[in-house]
């Protein structure tokens, strides 16, 4: 990935009069962290970054804008938002368009074909984080860690993030401007973590998820980081009726997690953000992948690929499977 080209393109986009800002990644404050950044002028584009550490899905910020009431006589800022996307992020943008969460003409998608990102937790385990920000690059085959003027080659199959092992769309599915060359899709990993649980019997599954859900501290970072969880009025915040009690215990946590997974059935684009941000390390990705697999196998639907598609849960086919009906 040519960073110069990325920064040049971004600067060109940002100076356009109809663009409010560009959302991209920049180097974080330490270690392997990368922080989202809102670039408002050409000079800001110089700190943009695209590296195997850019795991965050920036499409979240499209729907995260909080609108305060406008003072009388003032017009809303209707300029466009530009956004850097990887393959998975572009699926989130597509799905948002499908659901009319955003308007296609309100975003400028700057696509970055992505050869896969690293699992920063695994990386930090092997090579502990330093106070100084480190860099990671692609070298065609593997990742290269640049830290303290040392170059360490990181084997791809060892450090590739879980979500990337199962990624079918490394190239952005929609983009207005593409930076860099398209990458060749790779062979998918066989193990998606779902079969492992399906192999258990009901009691074992119950025990497994009880252990997992009991860990939940209900910080809602999985909800907030999700590009497709953008309801203005979330059921989890409602008190009248109280869908899910505020108490934190296994019962309510299960209701919350099932509700979350269900709301993402047929919508989750498997960017893996929920699993990455969870401070309690709950394997939320397994729930999402299970649902995504059912949707694909039983209903032949893949979210976030076709901007013209009908939303999965708001559409039907007369011949949908009904073998479970009495």
């Amino acid at each position: 990935m040519d960073l110069e080209q990325l920064r040049k393109t971004a600067a060109e986009v940002v100076v356009r009069e109809d663009v409010k800002y560009l959302i991209g990644w920049k180097q974080g404050s330490y270690g392997y962290r990368v922080a989202p950044v809102f670039v408002e002028d050409a000079s800001g584009a110089a700190e943009l970054l695209f590296s195997p550490l850019c795991t965050a899905n920036l499409a979240t910020y499209l729907t995260l804008v909080e609108k305060t009431p406008l003072p009388r006589g003032q017009e809303a800022d209707k300029r466009k938002v530009a956004l850097l996307v990887k393959g998975c992020d572009s699926r989130a943008v597509t799905q948002l368009i499908v659901e009319h969460g955003i308007n296609r003409d309100q975003v400028i998608v700057v696509g970055c074909p992505c050869p896969g990102v690293v699992d920063t937790e695994k990386l930090a385990e092997k090579y502990p984080e330093q106070g100084k920000p480190a860099e990671v690059e692609w070298n065609g085959e593997n990742f290269v860690l640049l830290c303290d003027d040392k170059e360490t080659e990181l084997p791809r199959d060892q450090f590739l993030a879980e979500k990337c092992r199962l990624c079918r769309h490394p190239n952005p599915v929609i983009s207005d401007i593409t930076v860099g060359e398209p990458v060749e899709p790779w062979t998918l990993a066989d193990d998606n973590g779902v079969e492992e649980i399906e192999g258990k019997n009901l009691e074992e599954r119950q025990a497994y998820w009880e252990e997992q859900f009991s860990k939940c501290i209900r910080c809602y970072s999985c909800r907030n980081v999700c590009p497709l969880c953008y309801c203005q009025d979330c059921i989890l915040d409602r008190l009248n009726p109280t869908w899910v009690n505020r108490a934190v215990n296994f019962s309510e946590n299960t209701a919350f997690n099932i509700a979350r997974a269900f709301h993402l059935a047929g919508r989750c684009i498997e960017c893996g953000e929920c699993e990455r941000v969870c401070p309690a390390n709950i394997p939320l990705g397994k729930l999402n992948r299970k649902m995504a697999r059912e949707v694909r196998d039983k209903y032949g639907f893949e979210p976030g690929v076709d901007p013209e598609a009908e939303p999965f849960q708001a559409s039907f086919k007369p011949d949908d499977p009904e073998d479970f009906i009495l």
């Binding site: 009901l202 729930l287 039907f316 009904e322 479970f324 009906i325």
Partner: peptide, 26 residues
């Protein structure tokens, strides 16, 4: 038709987290 889609998904999800499918019928 919508109900059929949703509840089919819900049944799969509940079974996945260990709820006996015999408890849920349509």
């Amino acid at each position: 038709f919508y109900a059929r889609r949703r509840m089919g998904m819900l049944k799969d999800l509940m079974e996945f987290v260990g709820v006996d499918p015999k408890r849920f019928h349509m």
